[in-house]
Simulated assay, not measured.
Amino acid sequence: MSTPPDPETVVSGLSPVGIAGRTLGRIGSLEARLACSEAEIEAAQEVRYRVFYEELGAKASRLQAAERRDADRFDAVCDHILVFDHSLAAPEHERIVGTYRVLTQEGAALCGGFYSEDEFDLAGLIERNPGKRFLELGRSCVLPQYRSKRTIEALWQAIWAYVLHHKIDVMAGCASFHGTVPAAHSEALSFLAQSFRTEPEFQVSALPERYRSMDLVPPEAINAKAAFARMPPLIKGYLRLGARIGDGCVIDHDFETVDVFVVLAVSDIRQRYISYYTADEGAYVA
């Protein structure tokens, strides 16, 4: 892994001064940028709590329930991409309507690995690609009333600016189906396993003790259009960009989800999306 950064260059998470606090995406009243303070990170954790625990039923610890925040040890070394709605008559930190958490290899080195390594074996992935820079995406959530194309585009403008700034080669991370029964998503999971597997250089498997097969339905029984329609919006979005899926899924009983591992090489992103997200590149990236 890369050498950890000089602490004096850190403003929020591991971002250097050149990108922290700058607008990384904007659509109408929505602005996407990195969290610049502990208060903004805590506000993002509150948004995550509202979505993951209050709406989707994740199991909160006693501390999380008391503070009403989704927080863990990775937050301190991650960068937090936030979407603000500036049309809201509220303090800045109360205008946060969506968030994404991103973890560089430097950050992972500081806290003993990537968040996803609790479920998937990433050691081989990193070892097979020593010249590539990896970025883990996670904790994606948007408040219900903002689940629209505009909000997602603002988030992805910011992610793309971040990727360009940090010279990232590969984005990766877990994405989830709701519930803890893989068979409930058998057609969609099988379609992913049969049609969207990673190339050998990016092969990732679920940890043996947590591995559950995704290949549950024979190919001739799958309706591709129906299978795709039943996938969560986040997974569909990754696939449209050109993402591939690792081997095996994992049940996360705390979050009440079935997790798959997504790998998106920057070189595989479809050109029409690159053209779209780099249209205003000069405004957001130094």
Rank of each mutant, 00 (worst) to 15 (best):
V83R: 13
I235G: 08
A20F: 02
L110E: 09
V181A: 13
Y146N: 06
R197L: 11
E42R: 15
A158D: 00
Q157E: 01
V47S: 13
V51D: 00
L122S: 12
G107H: 09
A60S: 01
T104E: 08
Y211G: 05
P200V: 04
M214P: 10
R210A: 07
P7E: 01
S61K: 12
P4C: 09
A71I: 02
T104V: 06
V217C: 09
F261G: 05
G57A: 11
A32Y: 10
A154I: 04
G131Q: 09
E92P: 15
G21F: 02
L264M: 15
A20V: 03
A108F: 07
P219I: 10
P7C: 04
A243S: 08
V83Q: 05
E38K: 12
D79N: 12
P219C: 09
G282P: 07
K236C: 11
Q194T: 02
L103S: 12
V266A: 06
G237W: 03
V163N: 10
D6I: 03
E199P: 08
E55L: 15
A184E: 12
A32E: 07
V263G: 03
H166S: 12
E209I: 01
H86D: 00
R128S: 03
V142T: 14
R62Q: 09
R139M: 04
Q271A: 14
S186T: 01
L56T: 03
G173C: 05
A65V: 05
S205A: 14
Y211L: 13
R26Q: 14
L155T: 00
A76G: 09
H93G: 06
R73T: 01
L30S: 02
C141H: 11
L110Q: 14
Y49F: 15
R128D: 00
G13H: 01
R48L: 00
H165I: 02
P200G: 06
L82I: 08
F196G: 08
A44G: 06
L88E: 01
K149P: 03
I27K: 13
P7R: 00
L30M: 09
V262D: 01
G107R: 11
T198L: 00
E209F: 08
V263K: 10
L24W: 06
E54K: 12
E119F: 07
P4A: 12
V142S: 15
S148M: 10
S37R: 09
E106A: 14
F74V: 08
S176K: 14
L241G: 13
T9K: 09
S2L: 07
Q45M: 12
A76K: 11
Y211P: 02
G28A: 06
R33L: 13
L122M: 11
P7Y: 00
F191T: 02
S186W: 02
V170G: 11
T278K: 14
Y100S: 08
S116F: 04
C111R: 06
